[in-house]
Nucleic acid binder design. Sequence first.
DNA 1: AAGTAAGCGAGACGGTACGTCTTGTCTTTAA
DNA 2: TTAAAGACAAGACGTACCGTCTCGCTTACTT
Lengths: 210, 210, 210, 210
Amino acid sequence: MLPSPSEPSELSQPGQPTPQRRSEKSHRAILDAAMELCVEHGYGKVTVEAIASRAGVSKKTIYRWWPTKGAVLLEAVIELAGTTTGFPDTGDIAEDLHTQMTAVLDNVMTGPHATVYAGIIAETQHDATLADALRTQLLDPRIAAARARLLQAREHGHLAPGTDLTMLVDLLYGPLYYRLLLHLAPYSHARVRTHIDHVLRIFAPTPASP
Amino acid sequence: MLPSPSEPSELSQPGQPTPQRRSEKSHRAILDAAMELCVEHGYGKVTVEAIASRAGVSKKTIYRWWPTKGAVLLEAVIELAGTTTGFPDTGDIAEDLHTQMTAVLDNVMTGPHATVYAGIIAETQHDATLADALRTQLLDPRIAAARARLLQAREHGHLAPGTDLTMLVDLLYGPLYYRLLLHLAPYSHARVRTHIDHVLRIFAPTPASP
Amino acid sequence: MLPSPSEPSELSQPGQPTPQRRSEKSHRAILDAAMELCVEHGYGKVTVEAIASRAGVSKKTIYRWWPTKGAVLLEAVIELAGTTTGFPDTGDIAEDLHTQMTAVLDNVMTGPHATVYAGIIAETQHDATLADALRTQLLDPRIAAARARLLQAREHGHLAPGTDLTMLVDLLYGPLYYRLLLHLAPYSHARVRTHIDHVLRIFAPTPASP
Amino acid sequence: MLPSPSEPSELSQPGQPTPQRRSEKSHRAILDAAMELCVEHGYGKVTVEAIASRAGVSKKTIYRWWPTKGAVLLEAVIELAGTTTGFPDTGDIAEDLHTQMTAVLDNVMTGPHATVYAGIIAETQHDATLADALRTQLLDPRIAAARARLLQAREHGHLAPGTDLTMLVDLLYGPLYYRLLLHLAPYSHARVRTHIDHVLRIFAPTPASP
DNA sequence: AAGTAAGCGAGACGGTACGTCTTGTCTTTAA
DNA sequence: TTAAAGACAAGACGTACCGTCTCGCTTACTT
């Protein structure tokens, strides 16, 4: 194999700037500064100038690699959520869902990072580009993974054959986002379990008639 | 007597300015201008200056009565949603939910006003005061109304006795907001019906053992 | 005598409001408030609103009788200088000038009222109407009085026959205003005397030849 | 060596902004725009916004380098008067004074720029900082130059030995400012000559007793 | 090893909007 | 019926960020 760049789909701005002469030190400092600012002073206080200042970096450097402060935070959140990506497969779909959903809750929907995640989603309301990036880089892969796991469960007979996976995903995740974005109390781990049980009951496989 | 709040709770800034010497003409022009700007050019183009200019009003007049442009739009949205408030009571809980939920969808979650509503929710992520106002003035009354109707249904035996109303509301409305704010396709009226049926199935009253 | 108003040339706005039903109490309160504000907080802090507020008077009342805050202060200063108007006539022109000029210095060019007087003159630089009022109501009468006294001195042989009275007045008063408006130290009473002596020396009557 | 200040004293705001990365193009455009606005529409119409707009410059750029619109105009006037600075020395003090004083009259006390100069002096009545700047940067150097020339004349026997230079300067320049700021007709060149002759007569050297 | 071209820090720049202030007019309320 | 109280349109104030643009300096790829 030659030096194939092999990962062309950079999530930052793939514009003209170019190469791999990018300073990794600045890259890190920017992501960290953005995240810290958001956590410490709230999303509203995250400005490109503030990031630059705290990271000891020039504004130009930020604009060279990201189109928007939202993009910076998005990258930071993706990093954060990176660990949460995979679905486990223990054979017990309820258990696996619980594992994944509580991980999401703990990582980005409660605690200090909830602000960051909610802030990014907020920003996508006015920024179609960022909305695309959020979908492409964060949501779609995770939704796909969820559907894959659920599909497998359906095929294994743990869900009714005709189960509408889209609706199932909506019912599972919708309330989590609803509570995050409407400032309602987030689910506890226990409540997540109840929630999953309720939803799965809808799509339980044939009521096992004698 | 119904919980008619008899409208003492002004939704605008109840601060010092004072009384009812307020110009109703300006009030209207401001709400209209804000809504139009948002619909025509997007939430991002709604600035206090633009509202003032289009409404033929001075900025001071806006700041006298609202703390924030978000508060202006919130009042406009509340006005919009005002018609959607009540739950009908035909005796058929599924039907009544469908009536109310499609009204919400049509009024503020699809069409030109979706931008406005999503924009306000976005703004509440950075503005705790606005978040409070949204909750107090818009969400809480509607959630209470929904719970009241569901409670009645439970008492009439249309829902299982132990039904957790909070979770029921989460399951009903969560997916609507999830799809609005994550830029997924909104539900069609038909899909709302399916959705309601699925959710109610969870809490169906005792499997009727004759 | 009928109720002849007897003083038709009001120095305030001669506009439509007209009558003599004017509240003398408000009139006084406004003049006092304006003067106090200027003395206490500087000319810059004198706004119509501040005057109204301190005088317990509505803005409308001020605008009814004066066109400008400058006009209010002008009236106040005229009142102040009213006492200084007349020239004494002891027969000694140098002494009489000294009396008058030190009175002017003490009343409006030093002490707390210097700010007020300088401020009004400043305002006339941008306000032709006020400039006219200043000239007509304050300066011209005093210049005329000075010229009259000097003319008399010339006729009595205390000044050279061809003495240019205009230049004489310029030389006498110019330096006072120069020092006031350019923020140089004002003349002391003693220095005024020296100043007068110097200037009069120019126009001394014929050098008394044998 | 003459008191050549070698120009370390920047007349603009010497504050934090920093260096010589200043755009000379903007600098010029701002000074020109300010001066033009003042000449064309009067001092009152000179606002920072108007200057910025006409100069094609952002308000921030103005505030970065000057504390006040008055400071901008002051710099413009200083530039204007720059040419007038020096006193000639032909050996004839009356002639040299005439040269300098008519230059001042023509440059800043009559014609279109009189408004500007009078406006700045007006502004110093409410702005101590600007007053200082006016003194330090404009008046003091010129007064010093005048005194130097007069001192030399005294030493050469063209003025009486005990001549009070301060009073002499007051008498020479006072009437010019008095007429400028009190809206009286400015001196003509001929009248300046008469004026100088009169004043110098006071301090003529010993009556030449042969 | 020198040359060259990029990234980099710094920060000035033209803009836009902010939220506040004052002006002068107009309206409401109370005496 | 007058005047206080004060809301109003207008528009300048001085500040904060935006995103773009030089500057020199450093750093890492050429050749």
